[in-house]
Design a protein around this nucleic acid. Sequence first.
DNA 1: TTGTATGCGTTATCAG
DNA 2: CTGATAACGCATACAA
Lengths: 372, 372
Amino acid sequence: MSPDPEAATVRRRATIADVARVAGVSPSTASVVFSGKAPVAEATRKRVLAVAAELGYTGPDPRAASLRRGRSGIVAVALEEHLRTAFLDPIKTATMDGLTDGLAALGAGVLLLRDDPDAGADAPTLATAPIDAAVLIGCSGRMRETLTAVRARGLPVVVIEGDAGDDVPRMELDNGEAATQIAHHVRGLGHRDVAVVTLPFDSDHVRGDASPERIATISTPVTAARLKGTLTVFPDARVVSAGGSLIDEGLLAGRLLFADPGERPTAVIAQSDLLAAGVIRAAEEAGLRVPQDVSVAGFDGIAVDGLGAHVLTTAVQPAVEKGRAAGDAIARLLAGDPAASIRFTCTFREGTTTGPAPGSATSASENAAPGT
Amino acid sequence: MSPDPEAATVRRRATIADVARVAGVSPSTASVVFSGKAPVAEATRKRVLAVAAELGYTGPDPRAASLRRGRSGIVAVALEEHLRTAFLDPIKTATMDGLTDGLAALGAGVLLLRDDPDAGADAPTLATAPIDAAVLIGCSGRMRETLTAVRARGLPVVVIEGDAGDDVPRMELDNGEAATQIAHHVRGLGHRDVAVVTLPFDSDHVRGDASPERIATISTPVTAARLKGTLTVFPDARVVSAGGSLIDEGLLAGRLLFADPGERPTAVIAQSDLLAAGVIRAAEEAGLRVPQDVSVAGFDGIAVDGLGAHVLTTAVQPAVEKGRAAGDAIARLLAGDPAASIRFTCTFREGTTTGPAPGSATSASENAAPGT
DNA sequence: TTGTATGCGTTATCAG
DNA sequence: CTGATAACGCATACAA
């Protein structure tokens, strides 16, 4: 019944046991040669390595190692949207970037997962993938279910800019405060007639003027927080929602705002830099100079490709750090330590796209929020 | 020595064996209940599921399953650049999108890997991650080494727009032909004074006018192929290289081209839509109308955010399909079948950004490449 | 339809 | 510094 061990070597792919046997050492010694987890005599080491090369053994099988270790070295990143959509957003890619860095430092890789309810039956999910932990980005609504699946597995979870409830560490911005600060800056420049271009209210991505009723139903935490922060300073601002964080969406919103020369705002506060870039383009299209005729502020502090010479007035968010912090939190949870939620602070940046309100004598010096 | 099995259930996380035992069935039956790979009596099924719920068993451990099956359900996607950079390119994200779709259909997830030579010692790599196969995007130069590591492991590999040599299936475009077709279109419109704005020549990303000598040293396959295709029609075209596929890079290149009113080209052929968008912006900046004063063509056929009303004349490439095809190829290789390299065909699209050369009486009808 | 028996390839533990 | 041993948790071939 038991096959000749030497013969077996020929057929199967070599295993560490084969290497050990041929090298005349025990499997554990061979294992240590590859893992480096214990000192090995140089001679033994060399011999094992030589045999390995000879046998075409390329190192421990990660699958077997992960079973034994109880760790796969893989962390899932779950996105709500289609990848195409997710990666259109510079903030998300920056966050992902920090996250991959943070996880790589931990020795973990990133498994991209889309929280798609109607994916193929055997598509990998948070519930079935060989992962050690999960990071949820922009978690809301439906993702809740999958969240419970992960937690049932006892896997550490962290969310970025989303609400997973209670005891799940959360990495987020001081969206409200930062928005308020921008609004104060704009107000300090003498603007009184201000419009807001918001991110989507919910997954419907409805565009256009928003009534107070609609505003009350906003389900996207980021949108709601920033808008609230702005309305604190400009309670009567006109609010226009965009269909996404895209230049062209900002362009659409801007056209709407600048359509009627009689009702033009003197300043537009956009909830993202991309939207702001679109608004600026709409302004230029309408023959308005920025910031002389209309001021425009953004949010994010990303490098907007195609904005030309303008420097956006914006709230610079530490997107990469946010991602890295999520990675750190995962590391802590994996180590069995508790991980706290973190609120990141945006840095107000005065650019060249905001200036004194037309007809206002106010200088730009009164530009910071109280207490800053 | 042997611990009370019932007591063990309390401490450890429940395994399928625990569930089977408590439910009074054999492990194999319990296994089948979860995998669905064989019919199970409804009563048995229910009982097993009930016990599982009771014990907090959430399904087979993916790590153990993958060891047993010899498959992890994970495919690595290796990028040369930082994620931030890679995902700035709409073509790459579209490709990734198709790829993830294709792999999901296969039941595999995507592990994002950056081919970083100086990553942490225990960072996951193509050589150590529990993957079933790998896709290399934009493979060139250094990635070769890691490639050999993967092949040594006997894992299937596919490359997208890169050269991994000989026997590695490759997914690529008919870059040269498509570029030629665009050039023919431009030539048919009467243009004789044409400039080319290229993608980077190599990893140095040097900007500016390129001498024939520099052109001969291009190491990026895509850049070289497209340029060659264009120069076939316009051997004397001025060639300006950009530092990346970005609107702002196109803007820079465009400014260079339009700087001297006396030496302006009447048409600019850009190697990507983003570059073309930048060139258009430079043209408008210089007071030139597109296409009346200058024609601009791109390459890719992506939706350029912020291009406004213009529709680019371009070669539309099937980026998503390219990714999906890579996924399919992986599936075939995994099944033990051979996978062929595929050359995708771009579709010429005449937009509103190209028109008759100023002072030329030529109509736009002669717009296709011979044989199309 | 269900149960039995093996082994997937490692690595941690502990004794030498 | 090295070796023996025992899991890790599961899925399949095969027998019943």
